[in-house]
Amino acid sequence: MTSTLAPTATPLPAEWRDFFALTKPRVMSLVVFTGLCGLLAAPGSIHPVLGFTAILCIAMGAGGAAALNQWWEADIDAKMKRTAKRPLPAGRLRRQDARDFGMLMSGASVFIMLVAIHWLAALVLAFSIVYYAVIYTMWLKPRTPQNIVIGGGAGAFPPLIGWIAVTGEITAMPVLLFAIIFIWTPPHFWALALFVKTDYADAGIPMMPVVAGEKSTRYQVLAYSVLLLGVALLPWIIGGTDLIYGIAALALSALFVALAVPVGLRTSQPEDNMKPEKRLFGYSVIYLFALFTALVADRMVLS
């Protein structure tokens, strides 16, 4: 009998580093940062050990969801230059090991959050994992060019969970922190998608520049940036923060809009160096770090 099965991709057991890479450490650093800011900005206090545990759970949940995302998308990742070297498409890890690792991390994070911190924090953490791994990755990402808007919701959960870990309730302020990251994600990611769009087209992901065209994507980047200016100011307007945050949010968001204007209104030429898009993308990361730092600084001065 002849076997038509392909030879096993991994004759050797995977390195621990490959499992670590499954958790998307760079995304996780932003998740840990925004989660920590939510925790520090919340009114009230939490014991440092419990605060550390809450952040660890948020990080583990994000890592588990990232592993499940890569388990599901291994075939897509193999088709894109940016992701082809990830452990699964590169054949350094077995697919079912990535799935099991993701399930274990996700389950453990929710369980520890439940027994050590608060049931509501655990519930929102569990929902955020399902939202990213199932609703976004499996269901909507391959089906709609609004995938980034929806995916932004997944990235917006950490400060909300950090806040709930301290207060045990959902109020207007943590929902606004959620809204800020939610509205920030489309201009952040579409700026990137504008200069790497060929990759997504090859992989069959309906990314906005591919589906709706470059012009429409550019308008949307600008529209979301203007919306972000308004949403970022809301925590100050409703009196949830003081002047430090208010001034920082105004200055940082105004610069965001200023950088988004050339991206929104120009048309790229063949062999375009895409400088405004790369500049907006680079600044968008700094923006989020700076805005949340201002939020925590504001809270520290208030108390």
Partner: peptide
Amino acid sequence: DEEKEFIRRRKQRNLVI
């Protein structure tokens, strides 16, 4: 050589776990 690498990786994973 492969066996040596196999044992090295297993040892590292055990250590991390």
